[in-house]
């Protein structure tokens, strides 16, 4: 049971990352390939402040979020005027730098030895994990509500206009760079917050948690679910992480002699579904057209 709660809590973290990537890429067109960098910085930030400096968890989380926001703002100032491919490379490089710093700055992070143990902010006996899970559920639910509101708002319409044609949006009196910078900073900061919230779940952190695979998993989920759809991110993570990683890999009832095949079977299913979606639903399972018809009475004021 404890493992199931841990798995579903991690699933919620991934859903949050995919939701934030939906805002960055699906709505604004910013190809952030440094998701693991922001998430990892948040996770290690909270761990270092909490374990090394002895700061209370919440205080460590707030300071870490501020640091991630400053980092994202600085990075955004440097890269958001560049073309898509350049942003992709720059953000990927940023996440690699974060991982390398975690490995090399042993005085702070203990490098490959690992850093722990990170305690939950409050311990309420056996119910701690469930309450923490409920907190995550509340946060991800709030993200979803905020994204729904954003889609129906003037700002949401502006983000889609920027994604569609930034030059045209600028010629209509929109400060496109400022809009992108603010939203990139905010969403990256929230990725850092999710990282910080992941720290007590994992309890013990090692640099091999900060592999590019985290970024790719979030991207695959978003592409699969529908990058431009409000609910695409959640659906994508539910399929990739929920169905394949949790249900198939952990809970598929197989006899011991076939158990060794399960991880490969999971990867096969993963690939097959992704290929099928890209062939038959290139815009994702929930595509953009559905998103628009869902909001026929969106606020146009």
């Amino acid at each position: 049971m404890a493992y199931l709660i841990f798995s579903i809590s991690l699933l919620l973290i991934y859903m949050g990352l995919a939701q934030l990537l939906h805002v960055q890429f699906g709505m604004l067109g910013i190809p952030n390939f440094g998701v693991v960098g922001f998430w990892g910085f948040g996770m290690y930030g909270v761990a270092v402040f909490n374990v090394q400096f002895g700061w209370p968890f919440l205080f460590a989380l707030v300071i870490t979020c501020l640091l991630v926001a400053i980092l994202a703002y600085g990075l955004g100032m440097l890269i958001l005027r560049l073309e898509g491919q350049a942003i992709l490379c720059a953000t990927l490089a940023f996440s690699a730098i974060v991982t390398l710093l975690v490995i090399t700055e042993k005085w702070l992070t203990f490098g490959v030895v690992g850093l722990g143990t990170i305690q939950y902010p409050v311990r309420i006996g056996a119910a701690t994990e469930i309450i923490y899970f409920m907190l995550l559920l509340l946060i991800i639910g709030s993200f979803q509500l905020a994204i729904n509101k954003l889609h129906q708002s003037r700002l949401g319409r502006l983000t889609i206009a920027i994604r569609d044609n930034e030059e045209l949006a600028a010629s209509l009196g929109k400060d496109t760079f400022k809009t992108k910078l603010i939203l990139f900073t905010l969403t990256s900061c929230l990725m850092g917050m999710l990282g910080g919230l992941s720290a007590p779940l994992n309890q013990f952190l090692t640099p091999n948690m900060l592999v590019p695979g985290v970024t790719f998993a979030v991207w695959i989920a978003l592409v699969l679910g529908g990058k431009e759809n409000t609910f695409g991110a959640m659906l994508g993570v539910f399929i990739t992480f929920g169905l394949f990683d949790i249900l198939v890999e952990t809970y598929l009832p197989v006899s011991p002699e076939y158990a060794v095949m399960v991880p490969n079977f999971k990867l096969f299913l993963y690939g097959a579904v992704l290929v099928a979606v890209l062939v038959y639903r290139p815009a994702g399972i929930l595509n953009n057209r559905q998103a628009h018809t869902r909001w026929p009475n969106a606020d146009l004021s």
Partner: peptide, 27 residues
């Protein structure tokens, strides 16, 4: 900057890619 011109009464209609294809006509 380009974004400051509409407030000064300047409108520009490009030759190509002059609509936001993922937004409705009203949007």
């Amino acid at each position: 900057p380009a974004y400051s011109l509409p407030a000064q009464g300047v409108a520009y209609v490009p030759q190509e890619h002059n609509v936001f294809s993922d937004l409705s006509v009203a949007e």
